[in-house]
């Protein structure tokens, strides 16, 4: 019991430390930025001051373009990501079931894993059109392969001893899958999901810059069209913050929880 209390304290201090470190880093960053601005190397229009960016922030929040963009982008992202996970997992499982097919598809998808998401855009515009579905398509194609490969390899890399022990106790079929295969593969599956998430996030901003009339990527490109660097930087900061928050608060937390339970965080 006392051990538990100590370890919980340690982690909450840990996250306080994180917050303090981040705040310190931000302060230094903004300070340097301000100094560079005051040196006047670039004209104001190319490099606004932190204060001017803050004003842009207030402006795009006030005229609702920022909240609406965030909403639209996240809605698209969630829709695409859910499809990507469902379909990717399914294909991954089929790859395991049919070994020849799995081998073939895994080398094929390894190539597509590093395929730049932006390069799907022209294809998607011509195939599906200049619309939401076209954007979803780009995001799905950019993230589904890492889900497929991670499902395939996570399950194949389960130590056989777990499956042996479960079979020995009479587990088979769906019960074996649900109560042994899935949990045994979970730490590695989460890594795949984190990777897919980051691919999806890259893809949606890129796709929105090129093929959307709303969304975070869109207000970024509007900023460019109107030579409004304040809005460009404000959008970039928003994109950065959302990416960080989702990874840290959701995926990283999940990963950490599983790793702690498994005792995978015992490295000294």
């Amino acid at each position: 019991m006392s051990e538990k209390i100590i370890s919980e304290k340690k982690t909450s201090y840990g996250s306080l430390d994180d917050v303090a470190n981040t705040a310190l880093f931000m302060a230094v960053f903004i300070g340097v930025w301000q100094i560079v601005f005051m040196l006047g190397i670039w004209p104001k229009i190319s490099l606004p001051s932190p204060y001017m960016v803050a004003e842009s922030f207030v402006k795009i929040i006030w005229n609702h373009s920022l909240p609406v963009s965030i909403g639209v982008t996240l809605a698209r992202l969630v829709a695409a990501f859910v499809i990507s996970i469902a379909l990717g997992t399914l294909i991954g499982l089929v790859m395991i079931k049919f070994k020849g097919f799995g081998k073939m598809l895994s080398s094929f998808s390894a190539g597509l894993l590093s395929f730049p998401s932006i390069a799907w855009v022209p294809f998607s515009i011509l195939l599906i059109g200049f619309n939401d579905f076209g954007i979803l398509f780009v995001v799905i194609m950019s993230s589904i392969f890492s889900i497929m490969i991670s499902t395939y390899s996570s399950i194949r890399n389960i130590p056989p001893i777990y499956l042996d022990a479960a079979k020995n106790m009479g587990a088979k079929g769906f019960y074996l899958f649900r109560h042994v295969t899935i949990p045994a593969a979970t730490p590695s599956l989460i890594i795949g999901i984190r990777q897919a998430w980051s691919f999806a996030w890259h893809a949606i901003i890129g796709a929105e810059i090129l093929m959307s009339i709303v969304g975070l990527g869109h207000i970024l490109s509007v900023g460019r069209d109107f030579l409004d660097m304040g809005q460009v930087i404000a959008s970039m900061i928003t994109i950065f913050a959302i990416g960080l928050l989702v990874d840290r608060l959701l995926l990283f937390k999940l990963d950490e929880r599983v790793r702690r339970k498994w005792g995978l965080d015992q490295h000294r």
């Binding site: 777990y162 042996d164 022990a165 479960a166 020995n168 042994v180 045994a184 339970k261 498994w262 005792g263």
Partner: peptide, 12 residues
């Protein structure tokens, strides 16, 4: 039922 040499317990 087998008691495996490696234990084979489920870490989850």
């Amino acid at each position: 039922i087998m008691v495996f040499q490696e234990g084979a317990l489920f870490p989850w």
